[in-house]
Write a protein that binds this DNA or RNA. Structure first.
Lengths: 211, 211
DNA sequence: GTCTATAGCAGGATAGAC
DNA sequence: GTCTATCCTGCTATAGAC
């Protein structure tokens, strides 16, 4: 039993460190040697547990990124559930809160967004997995929620663009922190995040409701 | 004179191919061998002309990215100059047009945004150069332009966030095309880009003017 | 300035002992 | 399952001929 217990732990340690390093530095900048050293296990362990480096990378998305995306989603649904007949702004505020102040630790959130940002810029396998399992269903769900707050007969195309705009802000403010900080000198402390959430909710709800 | 002429060309060819490859694949995924092969010159040419790989990468930003950002900026100012007393929407429409349908070819635009997207996710030297020479002054300029369309006494912090929101959309729709296409099935053809420009102008102007 | 050749090193992957 | 040792490939960078 000890042997089996250690296995699982070694595999998990590799996944954790691999995710951290891939997020920080990108797939090609990270070596198996770095990963196994950080995970305090043997060099051969990656090939033993995951076959090869590429599959380890994909498993990071399957076994770490997706479950975390589900936690954010569930947090969003949870916050939204506390409101009676939520307004458009309620929906967006819940969404922004889940994304920016949600269930993830700061480290987790940073990793989460860096991983997807890399895939958005240059997909090397993770985006396909994540788009079909998370983004596609989530956009549909969100679209249905938002439609209930809008007059009938919304243009579907237009609505999609609006949802992407929300998503663009959530993504940008989460993963371009460096630029935001360089330009404004604001640190991402609790006060600034709360301000961001309100800004996104306000600005997106007026953006979606226009016309 | 032929000799000197060839030098300049070789250096330029290296810069062009380096930019293309760095944009597509990221700094670490690209080798000097790939670059010199694509530029049809000798392996040693990179070290001769640029010292080392890292400096070649930075020169791509200094000699290629920044001049192109200036072209986009000048296009924006040019379009804006055709309007008398431009409204907020005029400003944003000109800006979105310059970014999404502007002076760059499709290839140039793709490279431009992929390069900066990578630096936003994980700066390795390019962002510092670009933020100080382009973003910082541009945000200030844009801020002044927008203020003329808004009532006095705008909150500076709030205005900065609003400008970042515009920037987030411009960036997202330019560099997350893969995701947009996966989810919506829209290709980035001329019609879709025009639609995007209008969407961004409408949605951002109502977002900025709210309250 | 350009090229060939190569030094010197780091990477992914695997074989085989334990 | 874990570990060591190692193969082989590909990389950056440079020395030195032309």
């Amino acid at each position: 039993m000890e042997a089996k217990g250690r296995d699982v732990l070694a595999k998990d340690r590799i996944l954790d460190k691999a995710e951290e390093l891939f997020a920080q530095n990108g797939y090609f900048a990270v070596s198996i040697r770095q990963i196994t050293a950080a995970a305090e296990c043997n060099l051969a362990a990656v090939n033993y547990h995951f076959g090869n480096k590429k599959n380890l990378y994909l498993e990071v998305f399957r076994l770490r990124w997706i479950p975390r995306a589900r936690r954010i989603h569930d947090t969003f649904i949870g916050i939204l559930g506390t409101k009676n007949e939520p307004s458009l702004r309620d929906i967006l505020h819940s969404l922004a809160t889940a994304f920016i102040e949600g269930p993830l630790t700061d480290d987790e959130r940073e990793r989460h967004h860096q991983l997807i940002a890399r895939e958005l810029a240059k997909p090397i396998g993770g985006l396909d997995i994540v788009a079909s399992q998370i983004h596609q269903p989530f956009f549909n769900e969100l679209s249905d929620l938002v439609k209930e707050c809008l007059p009938e007969g919304q243009n579907e195309q237009e609505l999609m663009l609006k949802l992407f705009s929300v998503f663009s802000m959530l993504t940008f403010f989460n993963f371009s922190r460096e630029l935001v900080t360089i330009i404004t000198n604001y640190q991402y402390d609790q006060a600034f995040k709360a301000r961001l959430v309100n800004h996104i909710a306000d600005s997106c709800s007026s953006g979606i409701a226009y016309k």
